[in-house]
């Protein structure tokens, strides 16, 4: 069995995850990366996307991740993110509503730069949540 390493996922509201993993796959600003035991020390920003947490023994879980920062160091990974959810925690209705709202806002005429960026970000978050929640079923 592959060696495991320690992973912590921390959000402002709670410690989301704190356990040993065999592999962590996560989307950074430069693309998807996988972290294994004894990874080189690394700090990188993380994008909106899903994280795959592979426990070994065929066990695997997925979670939605909001922007954040990943620090790998001494075979320990710490992910600081604005928000993280397990698929079963996602409120699908709410995500759908958020998606609609963001789309409407993008299509409407009166908007400024600021609103547009924000709408884009919330659209991506909503789509990401919906995808992860649906994949579960």
């Amino acid at each position: 069995m592959a060696k495991k390493f320690h992973v912590e996922i921390v959000t402002p509201n709670r410690v989301f995850f704190d356990d040993e993993l065999e592999k962590l796959v996560i989307r950074t600003t430069t693309g998807d990366i996988a972290i294994l035991h004894d990874h080189t020390p690394l700090i990188t920003p993380v994008e909106i996307g899903r994280a795959r947490l592979i426990f070994g023994d065929g066990k695997e879980r997925e979670a939605t991740i909001s922007p954040g920062i990943l620090t790998v160091d001494d075979s320990k990974a710490i992910l600081l993110t604005d928000a993280a959810e397990w698929p079963e925690e996602i409120d699908l209705d709410r995500a759908e509503r958020a998606k609609l709202r963001a789309k409407e806002r993008l299509e409407s005429q009166k908007k400024n730069q600021m609103d547009e960026t924000r709408a884009r970000v919330s659209l991506r978050k909503a789509v990401n949540r919906i995808e992860v929640a649906k994949r579960k079923k």
Partner: peptide, 25 residues
């Protein structure tokens, strides 16, 4: 220990992301 730390894509990028986060938090 930090000497070998890799910053992806660059220390600037990481810092630009991290400073607002730091202030906010």
């Amino acid at each position: 220990r930090d000497e070998v730390m890799t910053y992806e894509p660059s220390p600037e990028e990481v810092l630009n992301y991290l400073i607002p986060k730091y202030v906010e938090s």
